[in-house]
Design a protein around this nucleic acid. Structure first.
Length: 1039
RNA sequence: GGGCGGGUAGCUCAGUUGGCUAGAGCGUCCGCCUUACACGCGGAAGGUCCGGGGUUCGAGCCCCCGCCCGCCUACCA
């Protein structure tokens, strides 16, 4: 080997063994130093590249990433890396989510555990006029900084090719501007409003929750049957009772009616009479409402089974009762404090003789009510009952339906909900509500993979209710609304609405960065200041809440001077998440974002990368997040024309991936102790191994199982599943090491370009298999079939390349220059194909292979699309279809089956691998064997292939109806083993001949099945019969 | 209650418009440290495709009924 043929810049020789930890940090460093993952919006704008963009589902800063994140991010990285190599201008936008209630809870918990001042203490400070709020937020901010850094570190350790310099956080200044703008526009357009109604109240964290933040659990409880005395017009008890059935006796203090079904023959006569609430003394009517279920002990319906026919109506503490209350104009009496204790300080005035209940928790109150009713002889019955109760998804406390003032997004408006439905791909719609408009190019562009999840999306919107967005928390985007309560008269109009505060300017539209909405305090209805409240006020006088929303805090200084106060609440986390496709790309003001971040091309990002290509997420997020991104993106990027709500989509495809469960089908969780930490797997197996395993596991089903075991060395949780990925990477490394060795040891005379037609059959076969694999992988990428990608790569590398090709070329590689070209090119192609799944090891190997290029193969294109010389930015392999030559694939395939038949004989007779044996064949077979080159000798362990008959002991085997013989197996042939082998062979053949005969003697089959199938079956039958005869004859000879 | 997914080898899973004797990896058994790889090589055993009907020449796949598991969703009578 001359020094001239060994370039100086060749990378260091490969070590004996691949240890991921020895390479991964350096490879990662190399990528980031080369800015390999940097997206350039200018290339999209100029039309020199198509965009491919994925926005990461921002992980919560509540904690470190788990295996589900590893799967989610592996999938995204595979797509991103493959498209980058295919020449797309690729952006993977990373970031994290502030996760309001979740983070606030977890920080509070940690502060408590560390014995430091916690949320309750800071609340006290705030109440005393101190700055407890900002102090507590600073503690949360510390936590966020810690975990954001950890998450970023984890993402890098996994090898994700995110554009990290562009990383965002849902509460950073860029995202905050998007929140402010979106809130303002929705407020101004009447899509955000304030409403007083029952909300899902979490009494532990003391905040309202959205419907989908509530999870229902079955609770074992009881039905209580309580007697309410009927009273006459004078209020005197008549001695009669009605018995209400309830699961919530502790809310009876707030009852304002008892309802019966108006068609209930046994009870309808009581409608119009009155009852008196025991202890409270409140006299309330018996009303008729057909919501009430009539009792039926025989019914399958548990309600009918347990019902008494009388329903206590508690409008302030039950959602259905609330509706009944509205229908019958009943008072709403709230008998609870925000911590769900019984209280007379929040709307309950007629406590009467029920003072004993005040201050009790709802649980204690339930027992006390039961005890008091029982003592008074008013408890008719109590039966055990199991039912579903909503619980907070954060504190896990039972949700209290609670009457309060909150902010809502009017998602039920057609501009939002209808727009989301119209976004769906036509072929995935099942209902005909809100059909896509053929004139709107953005309609119908949203496609779910797998398709069944489109139904989840659609039905969610069909049943949508307005979205409660205010949260009584401190960690989050503070609601940008200022309020003042005024009593309006003609006299106060001039002081309050006009003049000094500038409200009339806002109302008249002269102040475009502020908007006002006014509600009447008495009933919470909204009034239009322009038409309803202009002087003279006249009949519309009374108490009003004036709400001003403004784009900047500075503008509000003058309002604060006149007594306006900012809403103390923050927004639901999902409000800012819903804006993720906009905020991360600089909307609404790319210049301002550029100024703040120093990222100069921020203004070009939105135009280049929204809509993004695909959103990859778990199915539980469809309602919480996907829906809202679609609605907001479309609304806020709508044209300013008539179609203002139906603008651009945030993404075109949604891929919903499986959830990882443990070996028993349980969710992985901290409390069960069955979680697997991705970093542990990276340490024990390597990032590539983890990624390969996760990729291959990702089928189109809804869950995948991963048996969890303790690592015997570290004691950490791991799974044997990852061994497959590790073994695969080791195999790849060893194969590459061997190939490099071959290329280094033998060289000279390699052609610049080799033509497939001039090559050995085994080379052409390998190129054919490569071409087939590329085709399959490309198709699988389009369809998000990740397990197909993993499986195809596994088979290509391990079976085709290592087991057959490398073994097959061992005899010829030394002397065949063109085979060396093929070896190098095929392995480089495989390494490139593997890169999206296993980026680290392929980057290491790519460096080696790129330094050993000898020439190219016609019809196999390995383009390079950058001068970085990194696998991460090189080109994706392309092949011409002609490379997959059916004749070569078939004839080499047949030869492989022939070799396997010889191996079976060898194993049956326990011939040691080293022993070379002799094959005796007829002239026809000899021609076939030599037709595919010299691979048979190497792969079957033969010394000679001859048409001469054996001179010593030999063993026969049957292949394609002809008898072949092997000799020189051992010093003496084991006749017993041979008989056993032949007997079994004959049994197998008899079985399949019988099956084929059965089919062929069935006239239905021969007449109705396609002719080529029948011919095929017939040929098979004949072949097997011939095989059987040969075997039987041989067995006879042995006997 | 409604919707969705799943039930295939001991385990984890494939099985692409119905058509080879239903496949892979791990595990098990047999033989091998064959000069890339024992995280490996060669071979083997192992299945009432949840149960029952139906359509079809032909069903793991399509239809109906039932059983079991999981997820989502809905009432706090």
């Amino acid at each position: 080997m001359s020094s001239a043929s060994q370039p100086n810049d060749r990378p260091p020789p490969l070590p004996k063994k691949y240890v991921p930890a020895e390479h991964e940090p350096a490879v990662s460093e190399k990528w980031h130093a080369a800015r390999a993952f940097h997206a350039d919006p200018a290339r999209v704008a100029s039309g020199s590249a198509e965009p491919f963009c994925i926005l990461i589902p921002p992980p919560n800063v509540t904690g470190a990433l788990h295996l589900g994140h590893a799967l989610n991010n592996t999938i995204q990285d595979i797509l991103v890396r493959a498209h980058r190599m295919k020449g797309f201008e690729t952006l993977w936008m990373p970031g994290t989510d502030h996760a309001g209630i979740a983070t606030q809870s977890v920080v509070d918990k940690r502060l408590k555990a560390e014995g430091k001042p916690a949320l309750a203490d800071y609340k006290k400070t705030e109440a005393q006029g101190g700055d407890g709020r900002s102090q507590f937020i600073a503690r949360v901010q510390d936590w966020k900084d810690e975990y954001e850094a950890r998450i970023t570190g984890q993402l890098k350790a996994m090898g994700t090719s995110c554009d990290f310099p562009r990383q965002r956080f849902t509460m950073d200044s860029v995202c905050a501007r998007a929140v402010r703008e979106a809130f303002f526009r929705l407020f101004k357009d009447g899509l955000i409003y304030r409403g007083k109604r029952l909300v899902n109240w979490d009494p532990v964290t003391q905040t309202a929750l959205a419907d989908d933040e509530v999870e229902s659990h079955d609770v074992e409880s009881h039905f209580w049957y309580m007697n309410y005395p009927i009273v006459d017009d004078s209020g005197a008890e008549t001695g009669e009772f009605v018995t209400v059935a309830t699961t919530r006796p502790e809310t009876y203090f707030g009852d304002t009616a008892v309802a019966v079904n108006p068609s209930d023959p046994a009870r309808k006569h009581l409608i119009g009479k009155k009852i008196m609430l025991p202890f409270v003394g409140r006299v309330i009517p018996i009303i008729g409402d057909d919501y009430v279920v009539m009792p039926d002990a025989e019914s399958d319906d548990s309600k009918a089974k347990f019902a008494s026919g009388f329903l206590k109506v508690t409008p302030a503490h039950d959602t259905n009762d609330y509706d009944i209350g509205l229908r019958h104009d009943l008072p709403q009496i709230n008998v609870m404090a925000p911590d769900a204790s019984i209280s007379d300080a929040h709307g309950w005035e007629d406590v009467g003789d029920a003072g004993w209940a005040l201050g009790l928790s709802r649980e204690d109150a339930r027992q006390e009510v039961e005890r008091r009713f029982k003592d008074a002889g008013l408890l008719a019955d109590k039966k055990p009952y199991t039912h579903a109760v909503g619980h907070s998804y954060r504190s896990h406390a039972a949700i209290e339906p609670y009457l309060s003032d909150q902010w809502y997004v009017r998602v039920t408006d057609d501009r939002l909900k209808g727009s989301a439905l119209r976004a769906m791909a036509q072929q995935q719609r099942t209902s005909d509500t809100s059909p896509a408009s053929p004139d709107n190019p953005h309609d119908g562009g949203l496609t779910f993979h797998p398709a069944r999840y489109a139904k989840t999306f659609e039905t969610w919107h069909d049943n949508l209710r307005d979205w409660c967005i205010s949260r009584q928390l401190w960690w989050g985007h503070r609601i940008p609304v200022w309020r003042k309560r005024v009593t309006l008269t003609d006299k106060t109009w001039a002081d309050e609405l006009a003049g000094k505060a500038g409200l009339d300017d806002i109302i008249d539209g002269g102040w475009p960065s502020a908007a006002v909405r006014i509600t009447r305090v008495s009933d919470g209805t909204e009034v239009d200041p322009k038409t309803d409240l202009m002087p003279p006020v006249g009949d519309t006088g009374g108490e009003y809440d004036i709400f001003v929303c403004a784009l900047s805090d500075d503008e509000m200084a003058q309002f604060e001077a006149t007594g306006f106060e900012r809403d103390p609440d923050v927004l639901d986390t999902w409000f800012s998440s819903a804006l993720w496709p906009l905020s991360t790309l600089g909307w609404p003001d790319g210049d301002a974002a550029a100024g703040e971040t120093g990222i100069a091309d921020f203004p070009a990002m939105l135009g280049a990368f929204n809509p993004s290509s695909v959103l990859c997420t778990a199915r539980e997020i469809i309602t919480l997040w996907v829906s809202r991104m679609v609605m907001f993106n479309r609304y806020l990027l709508g044209d300013d024309g008539q179609n203002s709500s139906d603008g651009q989509l945030p993404f075109r495809d949604v891929f919903i991936h499986a959830m990882i469960q443990d070996g028993e089908g349980r969710k992985m969780s901290k409390s069960l102790g069955n979680g697997v930490d991705p970093l542990d797997i990276i340490h024990s197996h390597g990032a590539d191994a983890m990624r390969f395993t996760l990729c291959e596991m990702t089928t189109q089903t809804q869950d995948v199982r991963m048996p969890v075991e303790a690592d015997p060395e570290t004691g950490k949780n791991t799974s044997p599943k990852f061994d497959k990925g590790r073994n695969f990477c080791t195999k790849l490394f060893n194969a590459a090491k061997f190939a490099c060795m071959m290329l280094d040891e033998h060289k000279g005379g390699e052609p610049e370009t080799v033509k497939p037609g001039d090559l050995e059959p085994i080379d052409r076969w390998m190129l054919g298999r490569l071409a087939q694999a590329i085709e399959r992988i490309d198709a699988a990428l389009e369809r998000y079939e990740f397990s197909v990608i993993g499986g195809t790569l596994y088979e290509l590398l391990w079976k085709d390349f290592c087991d057959w090709y490398l073994e097959g070329i061992k005899p010829t590689i030394k002397t065949s220059p063109s085979q060396r070209v093929v070896l190098q090119q095929v392995l480089e192609a495989i390494v490139r194909l593997l890169h999206p799944v296993a980026p680290f090891i392929t980057e290491v190997l790519y460096e080696q292979l790129a330094g050993r290029r000898l020439g190219t193969v016609e019809c196999l294109d390995l383009p390079t699309c950058s001068d970085d010389d990194l696998c991460a930015t090189t080109g994706w392999p392309r092949v011409e279809a002609s490379l997959a030559d059916p004749f070569v694939l078939e004839s080499v395939g047949r030869q492989q089956r022939f070799i396997e038949a010889i191996r079976q004989v060898r194993a049956q007779h326990q011939v040691p691998p080293k022993r070379k044996i002799t094959l005796h064949v007829d002239a026809e077979m000899a021609a076939k064997i030599s037709g595919v080159g010299q691979v048979t000798e190497a792969l079957a362990g033969l010394d000679t292939i001859t048409t001469a008959p054996p001179e010593s002991d030999s063993v026969a085997f049957v292949f394609e109806g002809a008898e072949q013989r092997l000799s020189n197996l051992a010093d003496a042939i084991d006749a017993g083993a041979e008989r056993e082998r032949l007997t079994k062979l004959i049994e197998d053949l008899d079985r399949s001949i019988a099956a084929l005969d059965k089919r062929l003697t069935n006239p239905g089959y021969t007449e109705k099945a396609p002719k080529h199938l029948v011919d095929e079956t017939r040929a098979q039958r004949d072949q097997k019969a011939a095989d059987r005869d040969q075997a039987a004859q041989r067995l006879g000879e042995l006997a």
